[in-house]
Write a protein that binds this DNA or RNA. Sequence first.
DNA 1: GCATCTTGATTTGTCAGACAAATCAGATTA
DNA 2: TAATCTGATTTGTCTGACAAATCAAGATGC
Lengths: 241, 241
Amino acid sequence: MALSLQPTNASLVDQVEECLLSHFKCSNLSIGDPIPNENTLAEELGVARSVLRECLSRLKMFGMIHSRPRKGMILAEPTILGGMKRVIDPRFLKEDTVLDLLEFRIALEIGISADIFEKITPEDLKELEEIVRIGKVIENNEYAVSSESSFHAKLYEITGNKTIAEFQDIIHPVLTYIKKQFRNELSQINKRLQAEGATASHADLLAYLKAGDKDGYRNAIERHFELYRIFMREHSENAKE
Amino acid sequence: MALSLQPTNASLVDQVEECLLSHFKCSNLSIGDPIPNENTLAEELGVARSVLRECLSRLKMFGMIHSRPRKGMILAEPTILGGMKRVIDPRFLKEDTVLDLLEFRIALEIGISADIFEKITPEDLKELEEIVRIGKVIENNEYAVSSESSFHAKLYEITGNKTIAEFQDIIHPVLTYIKKQFRNELSQINKRLQAEGATASHADLLAYLKAGDKDGYRNAIERHFELYRIFMREHSENAKE
DNA sequence: GCATCTTGATTTGTCAGACAAATCAGATTA
DNA sequence: TAATCTGATTTGTCTGACAAATCAAGATGC
């Protein structure tokens, strides 16, 4: 084991982090393998245990290292979005970033259309029907928000892709924030769209899913999000002035 | 300021992290605002400075806190994907996760089609042309990989969405890993697809972009990734057996 | 001989205190 | 008034200590 820090002007913790990560990458360690104890690592790196522990603490945040007293530390699979979850909060982010995330999320949901059609089962359709049914019953109610989110969460779940599903879950607070923060603008645009008959409800989406109409669905899901697309366009134009 | 830790069985650092984050969320602090110095914070939380520093170190990793000697610490906007960047490496991840990321990335790129058509400029088209031209010249060369990635990076850039562009950048090593790791399977599938004429090259995609043919582009981009879709399908079927 | 208990060692988790380096504010001096 | 010096403050790093948990092995009792 050759752990040596590159001389930079970065803090020791940053250097140690980089060194440890690259060491783990190169040393063919796999998940579950034990790693040396803190004193050994600190000594080999030539830093104090406190510095090493700050670095280990970062890695533990990602689930990349598990530690138990006396048992020592082992490598584990990092939860890719685990760290992100902590800092994604509209209160921490600039408006630009929040809108970027909205666009990100919409693009992702449109992009999974093909995956959905490939993997959807009759059971999934039943669940979606139930969600839509409940959503209609409690329309204009506070619970409509929960129905809204369960519908989309279910779509993500159908892909069978844990990372995508987790992403949708993490980004959820951003969406509720946007809906609340820009309620007036959104509602105005929505009225215009509904007057034109250019909207697509969950029921419409479900109908295309049941019919197996992939192209129909794809157009509908784009219409479903057209509200936000227009909002973002108008909002960025207003911001320019 | 009322910083109190909830009694749990989590480590002190985890508790402090949660407490600090929720405190920052609730206390209407905005970007650039100074936060108390380490000794004060540690005292108010009732923990040692080392524990607090482990927590601050985590937050610094996300760029959420900037600190300079003597000047103290200030709040900053976290870089959402900053932490992710460090741990996304195929060597750390299980195969399932790597394939999830591939699917994630493909879905995202398909999903941004509408955004691209909305925002693309003549200059963008010129750049894409140049990238495609270079890619053809050096076909079957090691530099083809670099052309491949610049083409897609450019597409992401056109969206004007920093978060999406950064995501593409971060996930890039995963793709090169997959191409290398599953070269044989991919090449077999590719031959079959090319025999059927079911592929779509960068030149094809560019042609649709230049023609402003949105539907054509969308179909082409799906064909462009069909190779990976088939691979994932076959791979997961093989894994079942 | 076997099961149980005790003891000691190891490792992480937490704490306390110290000093260096950088930087700022204010006093001092030319 | 301008430049310099001094001291204080804050982060960055180091050292040492102890508690708690756990495991291994030896000791003890039957």
